[in-house]
Write a protein that binds this DNA or RNA. Structure first.
Length: 500
RNA sequence: GGGCGGGUAACAAAGUGGCUAUGUGGCGGACUGCAGAUCCGCCUACGAGGGUUCAAAUCCCUCCCCGCCCUCCA
């Protein structure tokens, strides 16, 4: 099946065909680097990460470009406040912001072009725009003439006449039309400056994306995306600039990510409810956050709350339990039944379940990356697997290896089952020493105190207590282990522990 | 005012003409020393009112709410 994507340009789900067979070229508007990355950024980049992963799952080679805006009013203002050179300041935050996303476990884009390093490309594009009759110079500034570009408004569904009503010209600007926007801004004292055919100055905000995407991906490429808030004016202006300059269609498909709210409110500086990724990862696992975002449909605005994260975290537990059970069974050696060809009836049914799971997942994702539905198929597989284990306590290992393979592959597309990207709250050595202390209090000392060995010994101590019907002690050990983050389960085959 | 999206069970969130979505939570049962996990069963769903249809949460009409963008924003 082909992927269908809701295209902002056409306002419907279009079947996706890439320009170059087997290759997806996508450009996503990146961060303006003047403070740490926040969970709004996380929402958008996790969404595109999943989209990218699914394309790769489908066998595409994805070339993912995400720009860094390092020349901008806010950066300049923030840098001046601290008495730092704006470009030095933005360099510092470029690293910090990308590291924040790394910590979250978002896969890196292939390229992070910076505005400050693409000035020649921008100047060239502006010249082309002027030459084609869509831009004009006014006293060192260069503006894009909105009225001369007949397609203006096609992305955001706006029309110029309506927009003109509310628009204002800022004092000092020499626009012919209030909707015209700056391609190049005349130099002001204290701001980063580059020389240009129109005198010293710096680029306007919108031109960097048009220039960098066209120079890296070509005048026409597959997908351009960003947060919903960028649809107008940023993306509208990008289309106008690029198409005015090249005369060719710009991005073929536009994708916009629904903006995050926090406890029902818009996240903004004025409300003061901005949450940084760094801060949240102090108390929440990166995977829980990723899953929270991945579970929301990319075009809907998810509402962030501690309760929502807690719900996700519990659901994740069930995902992991099945993963662990499959791993256990996959490990088993069974010389009698080594191949899939010798399955029993219930096992054959489970084989069908695996196949259906995969088909449902793909159908969901092919339909405009419907991740809520994809997660539903994942959880359905969890339920069916549990039911299968119930009926079939010692399943064919080969079958389980197959199931595990599919399960992990799909999970990974949804950003689950990814190796931990940041240090867990309690370091293992700390936990080990606490366990050792605990074991000693029950009168046992072991030679090689690894965490596993200590836990095993504690479980044995607990087992002894249970045999003697000393449930007080048994419950005590369990409680203490639970407070250290271990879950203890008494099963028919004895007690087992797992990390929560 | 212009543009766009939405109102689904206790909460979150898919679906969009007939078939249990899913997750969390709650209740009851099985299992268990207890707990946990797991399984089984249950928990007044589709904003309101009309209409089309054998059949509507899903299509049409009217109405009522809510959010976002139009200024920098992922």
């Amino acid at each position: 099946m082909t992927v269908h994507i809701y295209n902002t340009l056409t306002r419907k789900k279009d079947p996706f065909t890439s320009i170059e067979t087997g290759k997806v070229k996508m450009y996503v508007c990146g961060m303006t680097v003047y403070s740490d990355a926040h969970i709004g950024h996380a929402r958008t980049y996790v969404a595109f990460d999943v989209i990218r992963r699914y394309f790769e799952y489908k066998g595409y080679t994805v070339f993912y470009v995400q720009n860094i805006t390092d020349v901008d009013d806010k950066i300049i203002a923030a840098a001046h406040k601290q008495g730092v050179d704006p470009l030095v300041y933005s360099q510092r935050f470029t690293d910090r912001c990308l590291t924040d996303l790394d910590t979250l476990g978002v896969q890196r884009a292939d390229l992070y072009p910076k505005a400050s390093e693409a000035i020649p490309e921008m100047i060239q594009m502006i010249e082309q725009i002027i030459q084609n009759g869509y831009g004009y110079v006014a006293d060192g500034d260069v503006y894009f003439s909105v009225e001369s570009f007949s397609d203006y408004g096609k992305l955001s569904g706006q029309n110029i006449a309506e927009m003109k009503k509310g628009a204002r010209i800022e004092p000092g600007e020499q626009k012919r039309n209030p909707l015209d926007f700056a391609l190049w801004k005349k130099a002001k004292p204290g701001e980063p400056v580059w020389s240009s055919p129109w005198g010293p100055g710096r680029p306007g905000w919108h031109i960097e994306c048009s220039a960098m995407s066209c120079s890296i991906l070509g005048p026409t490429f597959d997908i351009h995306g960003g947060g919903m808030d960028l649809q107008f004016p940023h993306h509208e202006n990008e289309v106008a600039q690029a198409e005015a300059a090249t005369g060719q269609q710009f991005a073929r498909c536009w994708m916009h990510i629904g903006l995050l709210t926090i406890n029902g409110e818009k996240m903004s500086k004025s409300i003061g409810n901005i949450i940084n990724i760094k801060d949240l990862l102090q108390s929440w696992d990166a995977e829980v956050l990723r899953m929270f975002f991945a579970q929301a449909h990319y075009r809907s605005p998810p509402d962030f709350s501690e309760k929502a994260l807690a719900d996700v975290e519990k659901g994740r537990e069930r995902l992991y339990r099945v993963k662990e059970r499959l791993q256990e069974h996959a490990k088993a050696i069974s010389p009698q039944n080594p191949s899939l060809a010798m399955l029993q009836e219930t096992e054959k049914k489970y084989l069908t379940t695996i196949k259906e799971f995969q088909e449902e997942f793909e159908a969901a994702m092919d339909d405009d990356f419907n991740t809520p539905k994809a997660f539903a198929s994942l959880f359905e597989f969890v339920n069916k697997s549990n039911r299968f284990f119930e009926q079939h306590p010692t399943p064919n290992p080969e079958l389980c290896r197959h199931a595990l393979g599919v399960y992990l592959k799909i999970g990974l597309v949804l950003t689950v089952f990814q190796p931990q990207t940041h240090t867990p709250l309690k370091k293992e050595s700390e936990v080990t020493s606490v366990l050792q202390e605990l074991l000693r209090s029950y009168g046992t000392i072991i030679d090689s105190p690894t965490m596993d060995a200590l836990l095993q010994a504690l479980l044995e101590a607990r087992q002894d207590a249970r045999k003697k019907k000393d449930y007080k002690t048994a419950d005590d050990i369990r409680k203490k282990l639970e407070s250290l983050g271990f879950e203890i389960q008494d099963t028919a085959h004895g007690s087992v522990w797992r990390k929560k």
